[in-house]
Computed example of a mutant assay.
Amino acid sequence: MNIGIDQLAFSTTDYYIDMVDLAKARNVDPNKYLIGIGQSKQAVVPPTQDAVTLGASAAAKLLTPTLKKEITTVLVATESGVDNSKAAASYVKHLLDLPDFIRIVEIKQACYGATAALIMAKGLVALNPQEKVLVIGTDIARYGINTPGEVTQGAGAVAMIISTNPRILKLNQTSVSYSKDIMDFWRPLYSENAMVDGHYSTQVFIDFFKNCFGRYQQQTGMQLNDFDAILTHLPFTKMATKGLNGLLGDRDDKVAQRLRTSLKASQVYCREVGNLYTGSLYLGLISYLQNAPHHAGELIGLFSYGSGAEGEFFTGTLQPGFANQINDVQNDLNQRQKLSIKQYETMFNNQLGLQEKDIQFDTSHDKSHFILTGQKNHQRQYQVN
Rank of each mutant, 00 (worst) to 15 (best):
M1H: 05
Q39C: 08
G246H: 00
Q223L: 11
M222S: 15
N128E: 11
L231F: 00
F322R: 13
I3Y: 03
I286D: 08
V384T: 00
R215Q: 15
L54Y: 05
D14F: 06
Y216I: 07
E150R: 03
F236E: 09
S40R: 15
D328W: 02
T12W: 13
K122P: 01
L96I: 06
L127T: 15
S280Y: 04
K170T: 09
E70R: 14
T13C: 10
N2L: 01
S201D: 11
N349H: 02
G156N: 14
G274M: 03
S179F: 08
M183D: 06
E192G: 10
R380E: 00
D207Y: 08
I17R: 10
E79R: 08
A114M: 12
Q381S: 00
K254A: 08
S201K: 14
S163N: 11
A89P: 06
I162D: 01
Q375I: 08
I35P: 06
S262I: 15
R187N: 02
N146T: 01
D139S: 01
S80E: 00
S201V: 12
P30F: 12
F303N: 05
A296I: 07
L75Y: 05
Q360A: 15
V255D: 04
F205D: 07
P99I: 13
K32R: 10
I182P: 02
D18N: 01
L339W: 00
N291E: 02
A51N: 07
A141P: 01
G316K: 05
T202Y: 06
I102L: 09
V74H: 00
L22F: 01
L244S: 03
L231R: 12
T174W: 01
F322E: 11
R336V: 07
M19G: 08
A25V: 09
G55V: 09
Y15A: 12
A25R: 03
Q383N: 00
D252H: 04
P166R: 10
I230T: 10
D100R: 14
A155W: 04
E356N: 05
T261D: 10
K238T: 15
G284S: 06
T373A: 13
T174N: 13
A229W: 13
K24F: 10
R103F: 08
S191E: 09
G249T: 09
V158H: 00
L276Y: 09
A88P: 04
F209V: 15
K32D: 07
N349A: 13
R271N: 02
R26L: 10
L285I: 08
I71C: 14
S266Q: 07
I102C: 15
R260V: 10
Y269E: 07
N385K: 08
T278M: 07
L67I: 02
G154K: 15
R336A: 05
I286A: 13
D100N: 10
F370Q: 05
S80P: 00
Y269T: 04
L352A: 14
D100Q: 10
Q257T: 03
L281C: 07
Q173H: 01
F313Y: 08
H294N: 10
F236P: 01
A309E: 06
L96K: 05
Y282T: 09
Q257N: 04
L224T: 15
A43I: 14
D14K: 06
V133F: 07
K122C: 02
A9D: 02
T147D: 15
